[in-house]
Amino acid sequence: MNPTNIISEFKEKASLVSAVIHEADTIEDAFSIALSLCKKNFIIASPQLDNSALPLLEKLCIENGITLLKDNLRKYTNGIDMGITFADFGIAETGTIVVNSDSEDKRLSTMISEIHVALLYKSNIKATAFDMADELSALTSRASSYTAFITGPSRTADIERVLAIGVHGPLALHVIIIAA
C-alpha cells in the first residue's frame, strides 16, 4: 500500500469506529484545533509534553481561559473535560492509535477525560499492526511499560446488544493527524 492510501485508509477506518479525524500542518495548528473543541471553563490535561510543545499549549490555554493540568491527575478522577496526548503510531487497517503511556498521568489523561484528543504524526501511520511489530516488541520489552491500542472511544453493547459510546473511558476520541 502506498503512503497516501495508508493515510486515507486510516481516516476511513478510524471514522467507522466513531473517532473524529482532523488534519493539521503543525503542532501549533493541532493544539488550536483541540482548543476549538473546548467550551468555556474546560479543564484540559496534557501531561508529558516536551519543552517545545508545552509552551505552545500553555499559551493557547491562557488565551482561552482554560485550565491546563500537567500532573497529579489522580486528584481529578471525577472527570477531566479533555485529555491531549501524543500517539506513537497509527494502524490504518483498524483505525487504531498506539499510545505508550508508562506515565500514570498520561495514562489517566487517556482514560478519565470526557474527550481524548490524540496527536499523530502522519509518518507514524503504518498499514497494519504487523508493520510495527518490532517497534511494539521494543516498547513492550521494557519493564513497567504500559502501551495501549486505542480504536475509537470506549464502547459497550452489553445491554440488548445496542451500541453505546462512552462507558468507563472517553466519550469521544479525536485524532489530529499532523503533516510535519
Binding site: K13, V17, N72, R74, E93, T94, T96, D102, S103, E104, D105, R107, L136, L139, T140, S141, R142, A143, S144, S145, Y146, T147, A148, F149, I150, T151, G152, P153, S154, R155, A157, G169
Partner: peptide, 21 residues
Amino acid sequence: ATGQKLTSYVTWITGPSEYLG
C-alpha cells in the same frame, strides 16, 4: 467474537506500572 475488526482497547502491560497514588 463480536464482528469488530478490533476492540476499543488492547492494552499491553509489562511489569508493574507507575503508581502515583
